[in-house]
């Protein structure tokens, strides 16, 4: 099944899968899906005598023990949280195997390959998803309530990020760039006076938005990309999916470009999520908008400091202003006097 064009780790993966999964006698169709600074993903099939199991390998780039960004959890932790989410009935890809040192593939895990669409523009516009779209905001609320309901005692070691700590983290990143953005200053000031008390911190997905949701004609099939998971204010996840940049042009549908906050909240409450309000969500929508603006500055820094000289890293600095207009629209909702 292995051809000459296979990546060099293919034999090690083949051996690991045969050790780990009963009945598998070969792997096939191994190909790269995506890659980033913190992880790479590969699609492949595991073959038993009469079955084809569609799988995905998610591992460290080049199988190396690279330092992930301070906000990302280890791949082993990611796998552990996905398994807890699955047990809590959150739609996630099953994780049949976590790589061991003896596999010689580096840190990572194997997950089921779920069929569906993650590209927001298709999900929001293609007729194929027309029946799913009206259900999505409520489903997102339900799913988030399940994630936030996972008992903290089960979670093991996970970073706790209070709203105040996250506020200070982004303030310090912004200050570090030493470039004036008066709209960001206004947003920091608005948020500073409204930072929630760290009353009930829960498991938080940390990047719950279009792009990380696998959607089918029936609705949400899987929540992906758990690398930013942490313990924090549950409202953070509800606010992040409302950030206008994740609505991909469908501005009037506040939740991900497909629904309203009232549907998100109804789904959340219906699935047992307590005490969530539009006001709490708005804090994190404003925070998330500011955060994405600062992340654009950060990505530009990779260009400016020479670590990534691509035109894409350079140009993304000019996307900061999209978050500035969103912040102006959020914080100054009425038109200014002429």
């Amino acid at each position: 099944m292995m051809s000459a064009s296979q990546p060099s780790f293919a034999p090690a993966l083949n051996a690991a899968i045969q050790r780990a999964m009963v009945g598998v006698n070969a792997i096939a169709n191994l190909h790269r899906l995506s890659g980033g600074a913190s992880q790479e993903t590969w699609s492949f099939d595991a073959l038993t005598g009469d079955q084809i199991l569609p799988l995905v390998l998610r591992r460290a780039p080049g199988g190396a023990l690279v330092q992930r960004s301070v906000t990302a959890v280890s791949l082993a932790t990611e796998a552990r949280v996905i398994r807890l989410a699955e047990a809590a009935r959150v739609p996630v890809p099953p994780v049949p195997y976590v790589l061991q040192d003896s596999d010689e593939l580096g840190p990572g895990y194997i997950m089921g390959r779920i069929e569906g669409e993650t590209i927001a523009r298709k999900i929001l516009r293609d007729p194929e998803y027309a029946a799913a779209r009206p259900k999505l905001a409520r489903q997102c609320g339900e799913i988030l309530a399940l994630i936030h309901g996972i008992g903290k005692s089960q979670l093991g070691e996970l970073r706790v990020v209070t709203p105040k700590a996250q506020f200070e983290q982004y303030r310090s990143i912004y200050d570090g760039y030493d470039y004036p953005h008066p709209v960001f200053e206004v947003a920091f000031k608005w948020l500073e006076g409204r930072i929630p008390e760290p009353r009930e911190l829960t498991l938080v997905h940390g990047d719950f938005r279009n792009g990380n949701l696998m959607i089918g004609q029936d609705g949400v099939r899987a929540v992906l990309d758990w690398e930013l998971t942490h313990i924090g204010d549950p409202a953070e996840d509800l606010g992040w999916i409302c950030v206008n940049s994740w609505r991909f042009g469908e501005t009037h549908k506040v939740v991900g470009g497909f629904g309203d906050v009232s549907e998100l909240l109804a789904g959340y409450a219906g699935a047992g999520g307590a005490g969530m309000t539009a006001e709490r969500v708005k804090f994190w929508e404003v925070f998330g908008t500011l955060k994405w603006g600062i992340m654009c500055m950060t990505m530009y820094q990779a260009f400016a400091l020479g670590s990534d000289r691509s035109v894409e890293r350079a140009a993304i600095g000019r996307r900061s202003s999209e978050t500035e207009i969103d912040l102006v629209n959020l914080l100054y909702p009425k038109a200014p006097a002429p």
Partner: peptide
């Protein structure tokens, strides 16, 4: 005066950076 200044400045910035951005096209300002 601040909100008026920031609104006008940001509208002008986004009109250069991303004239088709939804936040600009649908801005109440």
């Amino acid at each position: 005066g601040l909100s008026r200044h920031l609104t006008l400045t940001t509208l002008a910035k986004v009109a250069i950076d991303q004239p088709n951005y939804s936040g600009l096209l649908h801005s109440p300002h």
